[in-house]
Each structure stands twice: as structure tokens, then as C-alpha cells.
Write a protein that binds this DNA or RNA. Structure first.
Lengths: 342, 342
DNA sequence: TGTACAGAGCGAAACGTTTCACCATGAGGG
DNA sequence: CCCTCATGGTGAAACGTTTCGCTCTGTACA
């Protein structure tokens, strides 16, 4: 049905090789060039990328596997990644793992079948086993947000530990001593953030009761329940650190339902999403991740490896972590959810 | 590098045809079946989908083109669409048009090159011209959210007009007469919503001053500025209809910055996003779209056309609009952002 | 004037599958 | 005992490109 290079051959009288050369930007007589262009227009010819891919064994597609597609963090990253890839002539094939490790492994295998040229992965799994099919096929991979410890696969992420340390420090500097933490220990990211929090408390020799430490899942529910529990304590915390977007959402819901006010009764600092803070009243003070930078760096890293396609080992930046991770600083954006304490 | 069917042939002594038959679920002697399975495991063989696609001219990929990927509406739809497609053995190739009609046209052409089997499109363009390459290639298309008038291409969407009519009616029934509307007329969806609003005002013979009608772009800015302007009027509206997510965001920001309170001073009803309402205080009353249903129906419609691959013309549901659009009802979820007026 | 060389074009092989038409085997029925 | 038929298997063509090595033409230079 669709026109092929052969039809162009028939129409122009040129050979397949010449037409292919045209398609790939080789030198032709202006006369022939024009003939081909005319034929293409007339036949509405579009390259068959499957055929092309078969012989070049390049698909010009980058597979992106995300732990969960339906959240602002992920889809903002997808947007920025997409822009970079497009500029470089690549398309993205996006697979949602729905927080399911098995699905994730399937996604990777699927993308290998599709012969993607590279992969960007925000993993749900915590070890690198599921990447084996891709590694075996020699497909370059760049991780985002969550590294796979000891895998040797580069990861572009934010310095979660330092960022949450600084967030806690901000609470501390505002005079807060009774600080609660609602966080998740289910993913590396969450644990890193928790570590940052605890480190500050340790450094400042500030003890908090065990009931102030709410560690659980990365979910709205966990945020909601934890905040409710905190609000029922005899001795309320004066400030709460909220470890991720879902937790913020749940915690703010619980707080909104209570008679207590932020920041007069209780101060908040959250980790993750910027847009959202606009809606809350008062505006939340937040640790925000430089999403654009994260995406640019991840895309850059991957594209670089695709260009020098001899799968060059990543240059390890000595300033940074083991295994060539790229660690970007996060930014604290001040709202008015933190009260000063004397 | 990667193992091919030929390697399996060498290892098992069977013919290519037999192995292919195995891969596609044909009947084999149990003995041979086992041999092949063993070889596959040993060689870590994965089908080369490009080669397969070349001969079958099926890619098992569905192209999804969205007007903007970085928002909750879109990515929630993507999630649900992805689930359906996966179940049916299809993968999604997602292209972001970044609200740019030219990019959108490019995306369509690109997906045609990729030989996708079908497309789901949430268009930015308002006429169907850009779909030509896909139509010519006989690729089934289903639109979502925004129909292309007169194009004959089926669209799955919400009844925007009726939903916003009902939202306005709710305000009216709560006793509001001075109702402002902040909306967008840049996309069909926005215009449909505006029409619903105006229709109610007309039906109820309720006149509002021109200054209550804020029609502009689909943007946070428009929401923010419009709400600010409304709040500066001598005669404040008692309630405001907010036509989409970005407008809600901007408007709520503006309101939060003012001394006025919702709902005691001003009531709000918004159109679009559910999650967000949890964060606002008080909880917003919202018109929510049945995203799951939208996605299920769109995916179903497309998959159905892919099965009976003789591109069957869509059955036109006589209850529904011209050209076989599928129009679903929206749902009003009550928060507490509407005050009763006497 | 002859040689070298660059530029443009060409034919054919290759990529890894599926599929078509055909073959061998053995079981069942007349 | 022959014929038919079902089953499992095969070889080769086809899909639409790219690419390798080759030829041809004409120009520049010695």
C-alpha cells in the first residue's frame, strides 16, 4: 500500500542505492535530487523505519521505563527528556512499571526486543538483576532518581541526603526542636532522605521521641495517617518534615481536616513538588528537585554514549560518588509554612 | 551480537520455519519444543521485532500523541491507556506535542514512519489536516478529549457543555446570582465549557456584568490575573467557575494572597483535577472527568478496530453525537468551597 | 596527451524474521 | 492393501532498507 523506495526508483529511473543516498544526506546531482523530491512528494513516501532499523540495527528509539507514570515528577521529567531526545533525532518509547517489579522486568525485555538504542530507567526494583537482558544486548542505560547500588550503572539524581539535611536544618534554625519526620523507607531515595533527617538531629544533639518518627510507605495514606497520629499526641511536634509528594498530600489533607493551623500551630517543610505548593494555603516551603537539570543531564549522558557508540565507559567524576553517578543539588524554595520559634 | 533464529537453528538442527512456528505458537513435537526452549534459554534469544515487523507490517505499537505530557490529566490517561494496551499485547509510543501544532504534525508523520498499528491523539490543532499521513497509511485513529469537528474521526470525551452547565447550576441552586467565569476559548474543550456556563445564565435569565467574564488562555497566568481583577471589582462576584486545572491553580494562588476567604467571601467550583483538591483548604468542589472510563473506551475503540483489522467504520451510536463520538458524563465531587446564599 | 582522482551512480548482498507451497510420515477407513 | 488425510517439518522467497565494492565520466595536473 504505502510507497517504497522502489516506487521512487520506478518513477525516477534512479537506482535504489542513489535514492538511499539521498535519504541519508549524500551528494547528488541537483537534477536528480529534484527528481527524487518530486517523486517523494507525489507518492507521499515515508521511510519505513522498520526496514531501516533492520539493516542498521539502530532504531533511533530510546526506551524509558518509569516506576509510575501518573505523577507530576515523572511526567515532567518525561517532558524534558522528550525534548532532548527529539533534538537529537531520537524518539522515546515509554513504559510504565506501575510500581511492580515484575512488570518492570518485562518492560526491559520488551524494549530489548524493540531494539531500542538506549534506556533511561527510574527503577522500582532495588537491584540490577532485571537489567540483564539490556546489558547483555549492550544497550547503554542511564538511571534516574534511584541508583542501583553496586551495579556500576550511572544514575542522575539529586543529593537527597544533603537536601533533607538542609531542610531539617532550616527548621532547626527557625528555632524548632520538636521536629517530626514522615518518610518512606521503601525506596533508596526515601531512605537517603530519612538518613539526612536523622543525621541533622544527631549533629544537633536533638532527641525526638520515637512517636515523632513515622516511617512507612510512599503513599497518600501513610502521610494522612501519620499526620493524624501526630496531631493526637499529647506533646505535639512544632514542625514536620514531609518526605515526598504523596506524603505531603496526605499530611496536608489530615491537617486541613483538623482545627490546627499551619504555620501558627505546626510548621511544615516538604520534599518534591513545586506546582502543588501554589495551591496550599499557606504556601509550602519545599525542597524542589531541579527537574530540568536532571533530565538534561540524564539525556546528555545517554546521548553521549550513543554517539561514541563504542559503549565508552562513563567518565567518573572524581568529585562525585562511586560508579560515576551524577549528583545534583536540590533547592529549597521558601513559602510561608514555617513559623519562627523562640 | 545478539542471538538470532539462525543460532537456534544451528543449535537444534531444526529449520527456520519450524522455529518461527514455535515462536508464533504453532504445533510441534514436544521433543522439538523442548529443544528450542533450551536453546532460547541458553542463547538468551529475544525476537527481533524490527525484522518481524518488516515482514508482518505490524509493529504491535500504538502511537499516542498528546498536546502536553506534563500534566496530571494527560499522564493519568497515559497510565490507563498503557494498561489496556499492554493487556492486548501492544506497547505505547508516546509523543509530546508541547502545545505546538507543528510539532504535532511532525509527531504524526514520525509515528507513520514507525509503522504504528494505531494512534490515540489528544490534539492541539483544531482541524484534521495534520492527520493526513496517518489516514493515507490507513492507520486507525481515535481522538480523546478534543474532537476535530467534521473530520469523521471518533473522539472519546466528556460532555463538557453539560458538565459545566451542571456546575453553574449548582452554584445557582446554592443561591448565587453574581457568578463569574474564568475560562479559555483557545481549545474546543474550553469553548464547550464556556457555552455550558453561558447557557445556564441564559436559561436562568441571570445577567452578569461583562467584567465577570474572563476569557483567555489555558494558563496559570490567566487564572491568576483574572482572579486578581475580579477581586478588585467594586461589586465582587459571590462565586467563580474555574474552567480548567491551570486556571484553578492560578485563581487559587491569587485568592490565597488576598485577605478574602473561600467560601465565606467567595465560592469556587472548578473543572478538572481531583487529586489537587485534597491540598486546597477548603477542599474544592470539582467537576471531575472519569479518566479511567475515558481511557478504557478510547483504548477499546481502537483495539476493536485493530482486531477486525479491516478498518471497520465505527458504529455510530444514535444516542450520541454525529460522527460516532463517544461522550461520557462527568461527575461533580462536592468539597466545601461553595457557601449557601440566601 | 596520459594519469590520477573525485564525484555520482549502480548492482547485489545483507539484515532477521514470516509465510507459502511443498514433502515425508504414519494413522484410519474403505 | 491402497488411498486419503492430518500432522509436523522444510526450503526459499519476501519484506524495505542500507552498504560495499564497483564502474563511469570528466577534470586537473604533470
Amino acid at each position: 500500500m504505502a510507497a517504497t523506495i522502489k516506487d521512487i526508483k520506478d518513477l525516477t529511473g534512479l537506482s535504489l542505492a542513489t535514492i538511499s543516498k539521498y535519504l541519508n544526506g549524500g551528494n547528488l546531482l541537483p537534477e536528480n535530487k529534484e527528481k527524487i523530491e518530486q517523486a517523494i512528494a507525489e507518492l507521499h513516501y515515508e521511510v519505513n523505519e522498520m526496514a531501516r532499523g533492520l539493516v542498521t540495527s539502530k532504531s533511533k528509539v530510546i526506551g524509558v521505563v518509569v516506576f509510575d507514570i501518573a505523577n507530576v515528577f515523572t511526567c515532567t521529567l518525561l517532558k524534558y527528556l522528550g525534548e532532548r531526545f527529539r533534538e537529537a533525532g531520537y524518539a522515546a518509547m515509554i513504559c510504565d512499571s506501575q510500581n511492580d517489579a515484575q512488570l518492570e522486568a518485562e518492560n526491559v525485555r520488551f524494549l530489548v526486543s524493540k531494539k531500542v538504542d538506549g534506556m533511561i530507567i527510574i527503577p522500582v526494583e532495588q537491584t540490577a538483576g532485571f537489567l540483564e537482558p539490556a546489558l547483555r544486548a549492550d544497550i547503554p542505560i542511564v538511571l534516574m532518581d534511584r541508583s542501583l547500588e553496586g551495579s556500576g550503572i550511572p544514575c542522575v539524581k539529586v543529593n537527597n541526603r544533603m537536601a533533607s539535611y538542609q531542610a531539617m536544618e532550616m527548621l532547626y534554625n527557625y528555632g524548632h526542636r520538636r521536629i517530626a519526620v514522615i518518610g518512606s523507607d521503601r525506596e533508596l531515595t526515601g531512605r537517603e532522605r530519612l538518613n539526612g533527617c536523622l543525621q541533622l538531629l544527631k549533629d544537633k544533639k536533638t532527641d525526638i521521641p520515637a512517636s515523632y518518627l513515622k516511617i512507612g510507605r510512599h503513599s497518600i495514606e501513610h502521610g494522612y495517617n501519620s499526620m493524624q497520629e501526630l496531631l493526637e499526641l499529647k506533646e505535639l511536634p512544632t514542625a514536620v518534615f514531609l518526605g515526598n509528594f504523596e506524603i505531603i498530600l496526605g499530611a496536608v489533607m489530615a491537617l486541613n481536616e483538623s482545627p490546627l493551623q499551619c504555620p501558627s500551630d505546626i510548621s511544615l517543610i516538604g520534599f518534591d513538588d513545586l506546582i502543588i505548593s501554589n495551591l496550599s494555603n499557606p504556601r509550602l516551603t519545599l525542597v524542589v528537585q531541579p527537574l530540568r537539570d536532571l533530565a538534561d543531564n540524564a539525556a546528555g549522558l545517554l546521548l553521549e554514549r550513543l554517539q561514541n557508540n563504542k559503549n565508552t565507559s562513563v567518565e567518573i567524576d572524581p568529585d562525585n560518588q562511586k560508579q560515576g553517578d551524577l549528583i545534583l543539588p536540590a533547592l529549597i524554595v521558601e513559602g510561608s509554612s514555617i513559623a519562627r520559634r523562640v
